[in-house]
Computed example of a mutant assay.
Amino acid sequence: DQAWGLFQASVAAHDNHVAYYGATEPTGHPDDKWGWAVQLALSIKNIPTGAGDVINISGVYTDGASRYNFQNLSGGSYSMFGSSGVAYQSVGFAIAPDTVFVTGSSQETVKTWGFRGAYTHNWDPYWNTALYGAYAQAQFGSLAKTTLCGAGGAGGVFGGLAGVTGCNPDFAIGQVGIITRWTPVKNLTFSADLNWTHLDQKYSGTVGYAGAGTTAKPAAVYELKDQDTIALLLRAQRNW
Rank of each mutant, 00 (worst) to 15 (best):
V60L: 04
G22R: 13
G22I: 14
G163S: 03
N195T: 14
D98P: 08
A134W: 04
E223N: 12
I178S: 02
A87T: 08
G174K: 12
Q175I: 13
Q71R: 12
L232H: 07
S90D: 10
I57N: 04
G213T: 12
W240T: 02
A172M: 07
W196P: 00
Y126A: 12
A210D: 05
A65F: 06
T206N: 10
V100T: 15
T215C: 00
W240G: 09
S83N: 12
S204I: 05
L143F: 04
T120G: 07
G155M: 05
G64K: 04
G85S: 14
F190H: 02
G156M: 07
W4S: 11
V185S: 03
Y126H: 13
D1K: 10
Q71L: 12
F101I: 01
D170Y: 03
A9K: 05
L233V: 14
W182V: 10
Q201W: 02
S191E: 08
I230H: 09
W123I: 10
H29C: 08
E223A: 15
D228T: 09
V221W: 00
P30F: 11
F140A: 08
T214D: 01
L161N: 12
V164C: 04
A220D: 14
S79P: 00
G208S: 12
D200Y: 09
N69I: 11
N168P: 01
L148S: 10
G22S: 13
N72A: 12
Q137C: 02
S191V: 07
L143K: 04
T99R: 01
A236E: 03
F7T: 12
A216W: 04
H121C: 06
W127Y: 11
Y61S: 03
T189R: 08
G133T: 04
T147P: 00
A236W: 00
T197K: 09
L188H: 00
A96C: 11
Y135R: 10
Q8A: 10
D32S: 14
Q227T: 05
H198N: 13
K186E: 13
S105W: 08
G82T: 08
V176F: 09
L234I: 14
L42W: 15
S83W: 00
T206M: 05
A136G: 12
P218R: 10
T215L: 06
V102D: 11
K45F: 09
P97N: 09
I230W: 14
A192F: 00
T27C: 07
E25V: 14
G104Q: 06
V221D: 02
T214E: 01
W182F: 15
T189Y: 02
E108M: 08
G177T: 01
A236Y: 01
T129F: 06
G153K: 07
L224H: 01
P26G: 11
T189S: 13
V110F: 05
W36Q: 14
T206D: 02
A231I: 05
V54M: 11
G208H: 06
S58C: 01
D193I: 09
G174E: 08
T189L: 02
A3K: 09
I55T: 07
G150L: 07
Y119M: 13
D200V: 00
S106P: 04
R238W: 14
D31H: 15
K225F: 06
W182H: 06
T109M: 11
G177S: 02
G35T: 04
Q39E: 15
G163H: 03
G166K: 14
N168R: 00
